[in-house]
Nucleic acid binder design. Structure first.
Lengths: 342, 342
DNA sequence: CTGAAAGCGCTAACAG
DNA sequence: CTGTTAGCGCTTTCAG
């Protein structure tokens, strides 16, 4: 049986198929697309010829004619980093079934490169663009009045008329905090990332709100620093001095939580018996590698991506795209670091 | 000044530009492409019209006519994981400047999906395909006699006639080991990943070779286990029992190294004073978060990707693509965990 | 120096 | 039931 793919010579066109099947080019097209009515025998003969020659309809020609390319662009400013990848996966998920292919572009955080990529994508007649990013900090949009719909995911456009999908940091902070309260903790501290990050501020706000509902306040000051383990180690020390009776610490990231865990251990506090610990990100290598394994907030980034894709598809279908900033609920993943309340 | 992008209504074609500039369609084309000879004034008039209307040549039409699409496919089996991302970045790097766009496809490790993606890419007339993967284990190729060149990066095709680019695990192991010897260590142990992984075996072989050159043998048995911190913690205990006088440990991954470091600390061995430690991967969040920061082997994955892209471009240009498995040298990153030799 | 016409691979009307 | 034709947007001969 000849391999259908062995057309290394010249690409097989529908013209070849038609010739091989002894029909005209138009008939071949209809036969292959199951359109119109014709003798079953003819249809089969054409199909056989196509199969034998390894015919693959040229998507470009179809696109040119049909006015649709079934492609979208995915622009990331995250160097394909840790956050945008799950988003992309989710997006690919929602798009892939629709026979839509994805052009990937990385901007390296360079606006010139970005502009360049947008131009290229538009020249390729993508039907829509998803923009993802590293942080949730608002950023300038990729352009106004573009001829295709645009959705921002895991990043946020400064332009109010754009649609941006971001994780619910505030809700996540509240979720983590309420979980700690449920397990009987009442003196909850917070060590997190730079105050300049909206994500850090929102998570802290969520925590404060949840504590407030219970008539409580944070134990010690909210400690802002870098998104690093090293800061977690330092921050924990500061916190232990400021609020020695702390019985739970909510951390702005899993990395910070690991650092905190290390200092707690060095200072003879057992996790979770003396101090319960909650991280943020559900970055598994970190959260599972930590001892004990970290309870943490998962931002459902895949869902962010899926939603972004779905909104984009709506836009492509001609339905008006919503605008403003929309938030995707987070989810708590409970592990050892908060088991067995006091 | 009108925004060139405000063509939300209908896409601007060269026909529109020609009409606006008062020239024929062919003249407009030549003017825009700087081809042929014509009055400077005409050229300028066309350029101005194109600018004003926000004309973007339709890449599809150009591709159809020119027989080149300037696109390649990137297939990953790694769910955009930690390893294939740097590879992609490197590839995008080498391709992007050549005005080549990249279609991303994730297979989720499903051969059916993979087949599907390959078909789709070929239908879109990509000019080449790069396949990346999670492990360096050999895998079946994506198809024989495809009409476009294919390069495997960070994964390896079973088909000897394919070109596969993989990191030099053996060289990396030797590099790490020689560094330890240089800092005066002589009793070097090894804790690494599953024996089933070629990467683990190659790294161990590299270490054995380097020790052999110095007339030495590994301290204790080579310990195979999971690629996890937990295994690092356990493995270190086993090693300390089997070879209590060990003064250096080379680990198969940074995660394992972190686990090893933790156990060493628990057992009262100082790093690097009593025992020096080298990891593998240079996965920065892990390597830098560890205390002390880990000396580790960087596989130069970006280079792997860049090379893959370059070979692919060669293939696209019609030059014959080499075949077999080619190896990209690794690089040592020295940090605290090996400073100050005994 | 500029315009007209052919054609890339395909589909969708319309004739036969 | 099948073949012919026009045309998607563009480039490239070849005449004018």
């Amino acid at each position: 049986m000849p391999n259908p793919a062995q057309n290394a010579g010249r690409t097989v066109t529908i013209h070849d198929v038609a010739a091989a099947a002894g029909v005209s080019i138009g008939t071949a097209s209809k036969a292959l697309n199951g359109v119109g009515r014709m003798r079953e025998e003819t249809r089969a003969r054409v199909a056989a010829a196509a199969e034998r020659l390894g015919f693959r309809p040229n998507t470009l020609a179809q696109a040119l004619l049909g006015g649709r390319t079934y492609t979208v662009g995915l622009i990331t400013c995250d160097s394909f980093g840790r956050f945008s990848i799950p988003v992309m996966l989710g997006a690919e998920d929602a798009l892939g079934d629709g026979q839509i292919s994805v052009f990937m572009c990385d901007t390296r955080d360079d606006p010139i490169r970005e502009r360049h990529h947008v131009e290229r994508l538009l020249a390729r007649r993508v039907e829509g663009i998803i923009v993802t990013g590293r942080r949730t900090e608002p950023r300038p949009g990729i352009g106004r009045d573009l001829p295709v719909p645009v959705v921002y995911a895991m990043t946020q456009s400064l332009d109010e008329s754009d649609l941006s999908l971001v994780p619910d940091d505030e809700g996540g902070g509240a979720l983590a905090t309420r979980h700690l309260l449920t397990t009987g903790r009442t003196r909850v501290g917070h060590v997190t990332g730079p105050e300049g990050f909206q994500a850090a501020r929102a998570r802290a706000a969520g925590m404060a709100a949840a504590l407030g509902e219970a008539g409580l306040r944070p134990a010690g000051p909210v400690l802002h620093g870098e998104w690093s383990e090293e800061w977690g180690r330092q921050g924990a020390d500061v916190l232990l001095r400021a609020a020695p009776d702390v019985d739970a610490i909510f951390c702005g990231s899993d990395q910070i939580a690991r650092g905190v865990a290390e200092t707690l251990r060095d200072r003879g506090r057992r996790v979770p018996d003396d101090v319960a610990l909650v991280g943020f990100d559900n970055w598994e290598p970190m959260a599972l590698g930590s001892r004990p394994a970290l309870t943490t907030v998962d931002m459902n980034l895949g869902e962010v991506g899926r939603l972004a894709a779905r909104h984009l598809l709506d836009g492509i279908a001609g339905r008006p795209v919503e605008h403003g900033v929309r938030t995707v609920p987070a989810r708590l993943v409970v592990r050892e670091s908060t088991r067995r309340g006091t």
